[in-house]
């Protein structure tokens, strides 16, 4: 069984984000990169399937820069067999990313039996790539998946919908599955795993190798900004009991006139 996992490298949630001077993107030089946390569920699911299905291979695919290959190395240290990187320093949109992933999967020479990914990347939060990829490959797709059971060729997927309800889907092979938190508990990369990952094949492709050009761009990023700073809160001194009553009426007044919440 050929299992593909699409992963993205995203800034660590603890990293301080700064937009570039021209606003076209964020400063990337000082960022600490990690594998998109939702993608970890996808990698773990692939490894669980592999453990139950001898002869399976897990191939991770990523689009991005070669500067730091953290996400691919982590996936291989966790147990994935092989990796493909489509190299670009550009900030691709979802359509271009999906097209590049499709190209890389095709270049691998393996026909996918299952494609897994995270439901969204925690940086751009577009929630589009798995669905566009499925459309391009003419495959079904199920997103926000929190339950995965494989029985022969049949896969039963549980998907979260609003209000906490679950939709249950039954699919048969090749499908794009976008994973959500709760699906499994991703394993840690072991130190021997990190050493073994060094010897696993990592193939680098260019955008032109996978048939992506500037003409594919559907979305242009023009102005990255930090969210506006929260105005400072107001403090009221009610330690003096005599003043407390006055403070209460002042606060109530402000909640009515300024905050307009009561």
């Amino acid at each position: 069984m050929n299992i593909f996992v699409c992963v993205k490298q995203v800034p660590d949630t603890e990293t301080k984000i700064t937009p570039t001077g021209d606003g076209s993107f964020i400063e990337t030089s000082s960022i600490k990169w990690i594998m998109n946390p939702y993608d970890e569920f996808a990698v773990e699911q692939a490894l669980l399937i592999k453990a139950d299905n001898a002869e399976s291979t897990v191939t991770v695919v990523r689009v991005g820069s070669t500067q730091d290959t953290e996400a691919l190395r982590t996936a291989m240290a966790m147990g994935a067999d092989e990796a493909f990187l489509v190299e670009t320093t550009e900030n691709l949109d979802s359509y271009m990313t999906a097209k590049a992933l499709k190209g890389a999967i095709e270049k691998s020479g393996k026909t996918p039996d299952l494609i897994l990914s995270g439901k969204q990347a925690i940086d751009s939060d577009a929630l589009q790539v798995p669905q566009i990829l499925a459309q391009m490959l003419d495959l079904p797709s199920v997103s926000v998946v929190v339950g995965f059971e494989k029985d022969g060729d049949k896969i039963t997927l549980k998907r979260e919908v609003e209000g906490g309800a679950l939709e249950v889907y039954e699919v048969t092979g090749p499908t794009v599955v976008a994973c959500n938190k709760g699906l499994n508990t991703p394993r840690y990369a072991s130190l021997p795993g990190i050493m073994k990952a060094k010897k696993k094949p990592l193939t680098t492709l260019s955008l032109s190798d996978v048939g992506v050009s500037d003409g594919d761009r559907k979305l242009k990023f023009s102005n990255f900004q930090l969210p506006p700073e929260k105005p400072p809160g107001k403090k009221f001194d009610a330690m003096d009991e005599a003043a407390a009553a006055g403070v209460v009426s002042e606060v109530v007044g402000l909640l009515r006139t300024e905050a307009k919440v009561i």
Binding site: A77, Y188, A189, L191, I194, M195, K198
Partner: peptide
Amino acid sequence: PEQKEFKEHALKF
């Protein structure tokens, strides 16, 4: 790079 990875993954744990 490998030593940095050891440290990072150990820190995650």
